[in-house]
Design a protein around this nucleic acid. Structure first.
Lengths: 229, 229
DNA sequence: GACGAATTAGACAAGACTGTCTAAATTTGT
DNA sequence: ACAAATTTAGACAGTCTTGTCTAATTCGTC
């Protein structure tokens, strides 16, 4: 296999630029080739950096790998929390607002570069680094699931939904929103925008058939919420 | 890394026994280590067979890998169709029967050895062998999804469910049944029986809240079905 | 422009792996 | 029990990879 320089900017300028370039290239290569298959020379070429620089920055291949996973976990978490912050607490149109939220979640957290890479690394190398991915589990799902569940609980409390267990509802919401994308995810592909919208739409519709209230919440926008408890 | 002989029967007897032993060991090692990381010597040791025998049977590493994926696809498909054959067409207790079906699907097709292995190989090597996994997609989801959808359509036609799109409903059914197991699957783990039951139960409950009929189907067991169209 | 730190190319040793080959040993069918 | 086919252990060449080292070059900063 011949190594070709990436079509990026020729050599990245500055210390920090190189660091970022290395992390990006390493994520891409680890993700594409797996840990065993990843080749430091290829990472170096793709980062536009010499091999020695990678060893200077990260020590060895395993440390590099761990750094990549930590980095991806952190960035993905940030994205997920930022997206959860856009959850529709006081929806005008519940269905449309939840569809919008599901689409944002997919596009900004699950289908984007970081999300795809992290998911693949967890799937392929999760068993080889139990403590590393236990850490991911705590910092990732362990914190994001409850945060999302809390928003659904709030929506139920305000009278928009009829939910018994908010944790279960949150997981089912995402499962439904992604139901049509499973095969694409399995093969590492990136679904088109319209596929994401399609899946979110049918998923949210089903979710609301199960958990929506027939009565569209008695004007419980601000003051009425507490009365319905 | 030292290679140790597997604790299986010492050397497998007979030509066919060796073939099977090689396929089993190779599936396990490819799955654990990925294609690049898989070591022919390790596969040979784990199969209780000499390295040369593997080359005699399969030619080279890549041909061996393709043979493994074909084999797993075939076995998994057989299991899925066998399980779909147990779908409750004339349920006594719709909820209980669908939960039972979801549990069987999980235990016999998704969580078992073949299912876990095939899923992982698709996830890790899918992009490297497009034509091979396109084949899987056609033979697997391409044939099993419609088969399952047909059973849901039949259930709806008989008055047990209220469904618009049986294909969507089938995908959402499985997505819901697995909603609680996602994290475990990501890390390659095998969920406990009670976790599978738990996930199936809450998934089916939500599914029936969305698609169940309030009226428990007007005795539409045999003759009444056609009338409700 | 000059100094110190960072980066580079390349060589290099050590080890691992694939795939081939051979001669001996074992198994199978008859 | 015999002959043919299969399997085995081990050696082997060739290739690839990791991680280190060195000497020269470039970069950031004053």
């Amino acid at each position: 296999m011949k190594l070709r320089v990436s079509p990026d900017t020729f050599p990245p300028r500055g210390h920090e630029a190189k660091r970022i370039s290395i992390v990006d290239a390493a994520a891409s290569v680890f993700c594409r080739e797996g840990f065993s298959g990843a080749n430091i020379d290829l990472i170096a070429a793709e980062a536009g950096v010499s091999r020695q620089t990678i060893y200077n920055h990260h020590g060895d291949k395993e440390k590099l790998f761990v750094a990549i996973v930590r980095d991806l976990t952190e960035r993905c978490n940030a994205g997920i929390f930022a997206t959860i912050a856009t959850f529709p607490d006081q929806p005008k149109d519940l269905e449309a607002d939840l569809i919008g939220f599901a689409v944002r979640m997919n596009r900004n957290c699950i289908c984007n570069r970081d999300g795809r890479f992290l998911r693949k690394l967890i799937q392929t190398e999760g068993e080889r680094y139990p403590e590393l991915f236990a850490e991911w589990r705590e910092q990732g799902p362990g914190r994001t699931w409850p945060a999302l569940a809390a928003r659904f609980a709030r929506l139920a409390y305000a009278g928009f939904l009829s939910i018994e267990d908010p944790d279960v509802a949150a997981r089912q919401f995402l499962a439904l929103a992604n139901a049509e994308l499973q095969t694409t995810f399995m093969l590492g592909g990136t679904p088109q925008d319209d596929e994401v919208l399609q899946s979110a739409t049918s998923g949210v519709r089903t979710f609301l058939r199960a958990f929506g209230r027939q009565k569209p919440a008695p004007h419980a926008t601000k003051q009425g919420a507490l009365a319905s408890a």
